[in-house]
Design a protein around this nucleic acid. Structure first.
Lengths: 145, 145
DNA sequence: TAAATATATTTGTTGTACTAAATATTTGTA
DNA sequence: TACAAATATTTAGTACAACAAATATATTTA
C-alpha cells in the first residue's frame, strides 16, 4: 500500500526533535548554563521583546499558558525575570528580565547558536529551505481550529 | 550573520513534532481510543514483534527504559499486555500483547494510518524523501555517544 | 447598575523525558 | 568457587505538555 511508507514519519520527526532538545540540554549542562532548554526559549523571547504579557509570551514561545506559568515561576526563583501587574488591566502580568537575566541571555546567545549549528553539518542551504517549507506545511495541515 | 537564519529551526521542529502528536492525540480522544499516542507506539511495536524484552522494546520505540517501564505499567492495568519473566535470564521481562491488545492494534491500525496521512496533504513524494533524509542527517549529526 | 460573558492567570491531574541511584541477577575472572 | 563487573529493570526526583477547572478581573448588555 502506498500510504504505508508515510506511516513512520511521525517517529522520525519525534525522535529528531527529541534528539535536538537533548543535545542542547546536555551541552547546556556541560557548559554549566544552569537553565533548561525551555527556560532558554522563554528568556530569549523576553530578551527580544521585553514587557510581554504571559499570554503573549506563551504564544511566542509556542507553549500553553499553564506550562508558561510554571516556567516563569522557575525563572523568578532564579532571579532572571520579574512579574509586574499591569495597572490598566489587573488580570494581566507583564514580564521582563532582570539585569541578571539580560546578562545571561547576552552572554549565552553566541554559544547557543554554536550548539544549534551542529545539527546542520553535511546539509546545504536548499535543505534548510526544504526543511522549513515541509515542516510548516505539515504544521498548517494539522492546525485546524 | 549567515548562521542567524539557522537559529530558529529547532523551534519549527519542536512545534511541528508537538502539533503532530497533539493532532493524533485529539483524534484518538475524539474516536474514543482510550490510549495515548505513546502507548500506541509501544502497542504497535509489540504487535509487529511479540515477545520483546523491555530493553529491546524501549530501543524500538525510541524511549528510555524508565519511561517504557511506566508506559508498560499502564498497558498492564488496561489488560493490553503482559509481563513474563524470562526463565533463562531472570533479570529480563518479556512482554507480549493480550488478545485484547492484539484486537485493539488490529482494529485501530487503519484509522491511525488515516490520521497520520493528513499531515502530508499538499506535499509530494520528493518532499517525503527530503524530509527523511534531512531529519536523519540532523539526528546523526547530534547522535554522539 | 446588576448580571452575564469574556479574558488572563493559576492550580490540579495525568503522562512523558531524563538523570541518578537502588535492586536483582548474570557473567567474567582470579 | 568467590568476588568484581556488567546487565535489566525499577524507583525517585525534577521538568515539561496537555487538558480541565478554578480564580480574579474586565467588559458587555439588559
Amino acid at each position: 500500500m502506498l500510504n504505508e511508507k508515510f506511516d513512520r514519519y511521525s517517529f522520525i520527526l519525534d525522535q529528531t526533535a527529541k534528539k535536538v532538545k537533548q543535545f542542547a540540554q546536555s551541552s547546556f549542562a556541560e557548559k554549566g548554563f544552569d537553565i533548561t532548554v525551555d527556560q532558554w526559549t522563554v528568556l530569549k523571547a523576553l530578551y527580544e521583546t521585553d514587557q510581554l504579557s504571559q499570554k503573549e509570551l506563551a504564544k511566542r514561545c509556542g507553549k500553553d499558558q499553564p506550562t508558561l506559568t510554571r516556567i516563569v515561576d522557575i525563572l523568578l526563583k532564579k532571579n532572571l525575570a520579574e512579574r509586574i501587574t499591569d495597572e490598566t488591566d489587573r488580570r494581566s502580568l507583564y514580564l521582563h528580565l532582570t539585569e541578571e537575566g539580560k546578562l545571561k541571555v547576552a552572554s549565552l546567545t553566541p554559544i547557543v547558536t554554536e550548539i544549534r549549528m551542529k545539527a546542520w553539518e553535511n546539509l546545504a542551504d536548499e535543505d534548510f529551505e526544504a526543511f522549513t517549507r515541509i515542516l510548516n506545511t505539515i504544521y498548517n495541515n494539522l492546525n485546524i481550529e
